[in-house]
Structure formats: C-alpha cells, structure tokens
C-alpha cells in the first residue's frame, strides 16, 4: 500500500505493484470538433477536440476545456466523423484563385479612369 506524501493517494489505498487490464478500443469514446465564438458578431472558430460519450457531455467538456478563460458566448460541437473535408493533396484546386481579379474589388480601378478623363478634359 502506498504511503504517499499526497494524503489523497494514501487514502486511496493503492498497491504499488497494481496491474490493470489495458484500456480497450473506444474506452475514451469518440471525438467532437469544437467551435468557439468569442463574442456576438464573431465567427465561430475551430479550437480543437474533446473526447465525449454524447453531444451533451461534449458541450459540457468543451465549455471548460476551451472556454474557461477569456471571453466566450457560444460553443458548437460536431462529431469528428460527421465532418466532411477537402484533402490537402487537392489544395491545387485553389491555385488560380489569386489571379481571378474579376472577382475582387481591387480588380476594378475606376478612379484611375476618372482621373485620366478629368485631366484630359481639364475638369
């Protein structure tokens, strides 16, 4: 029996050479991805995971693991296995995006045209 410096351990009456069966598969349940919103108006941000046995507990756990400091107003959890993702291997599908200036506000330079016209016509 362990006589520990920690009175909690001494009270638990633990054998020093105890042995236990290994943890089995799913012993730690499954994982939920956690999304945290700091304040109203902000996006929810992915902050990590919790292991939980059901959604209610996932929310209880997420609140403490990811919301015990700083500001929070809202948390979402979703089972990891229910999240669909693109592959990093396919990140080339985004490759030509920066060239597509016709989608960007910065692709339209009206002031240049106006100024040129004003200059030419002395307005």
């Amino acid at each position: 029996m362990i006589k520990s410096l920690d009175p909690r351990i001494t009270r638990a009456e633990i054998e020093l050479n105890n042995s236990i069966a290994p943890l089995e598969e799913n012993d730690q349940w499954e994982t939920y991805e956690v999304f945290h919103q700091k304040k109203r108006g902000d996006q929810h941000m992915h902050v990590g995971i919790v292991h939980a046995a059901n959604p209610d507990m996932a929310l209880l756990f997420a609140k403490e693991q990811y919301g015990r400091r700083g500001q929070s107003v809202n948390i979402w959890v979703v089972k990891t296995r229910e999240v669909y993702t693109t592959d990093y291997e396919d990140s080339d599908i985004f490759d030509t995006v920066p060239e597509k200036m016709f989608r960007e506000a910065g692709g339209y330079k009206v002031m240049e045209k106006i100024n040129k016209y004003k200059k030419e016509h002395k307005i």
Partner: peptide
C-alpha cells in the same frame, strides 16, 4: 478538488475541477 488529476477521463477531470 480531491478528484483533480485523478478523474475518470481527462475532460471530466477538467470540468469537475472548475
């Protein structure tokens, strides 16, 4: 607080400690 660090699973350990 006697459960802190000794709880049944990490996530619950944290919640119970809070």
């Amino acid at each position: 607080s006697e459960w802190t660090g000794l709880g049944p699973i990490l996530e619950e350990d944290i919640s119970f400690s809070s």
